[in-house]
Amino acid sequence: MLLLALDTATRVCSVALGDERTILAEYSLNNRRTHSQDLLPLIISLLESSGIHKNQLTGLAVNVGPGSFTGIRIGLATAKGFCQGLDIPAVGVIGLEALAGAAAFCPALICPVLDARRNQLYTALYRGGKDELQVLHPAAALTLPELLTVLNRYDEDIIFLGDALLSFSLKLSSALGKRYREPPVSLQQNRAALILQRGLEIWEKKGGLPPVALEPFYLRLPEAERRLRAKRRGGK
């Protein structure tokens, strides 16, 4: 089973190709350019340099979020066109689960954190060390105090990953002291190999979906809708 994996939900634009046993190729860019320019050329050179023809692909795995709304849509729209064009199925992968996969073998708590702006983090809490990640807190957009409330229910070490460490690592480590654990930078960032790995797990259990069923996981309403709902609740 040969999967192409895409991840454009954060600053990183990453593509990977592989099967159950091998990552055949992976390209990642963290160049602050718009992913819409880089994504398809990266896919094309990934396939060319691994000597794989696009028609050999079994399917596609894509990071459906959370993350940048625009980034998520570039990945999903590319995936949708790709799968419809080739008539192959796809799996949507929740980016936080994929990211936690980098530390899943550790018998510890794993807390992926992505920068959600507006003083929030896209985050979740898992327990590693078993065959399957155990979900202790589902994906959510939380403020730092809200996240700390969740984390303080446990007194184990917590491994943090994700791009929010760039701005939150000091705050987290000073709040958690010795329980704060941080892997090397190479394991902190989003990358498509992690989407591939999680995608294969999902594929094995549930199979792929037609592209029309591929749905984004924004975790947040559009700002305008949020304001409208707040106004209606306010009884106006």
């Binding site: 819409s36 896919i43 570039i74 729209a77 590319t78 066109g81 064009g85």
Partner: peptide, 19 residues
Amino acid sequence: LVGSLLVGVSVAKSLAYTL
């Protein structure tokens, strides 16, 4: 609108490439 355009552009690109 950039966000709107990006959906069509991304789909069109991958369709053209795969086909």
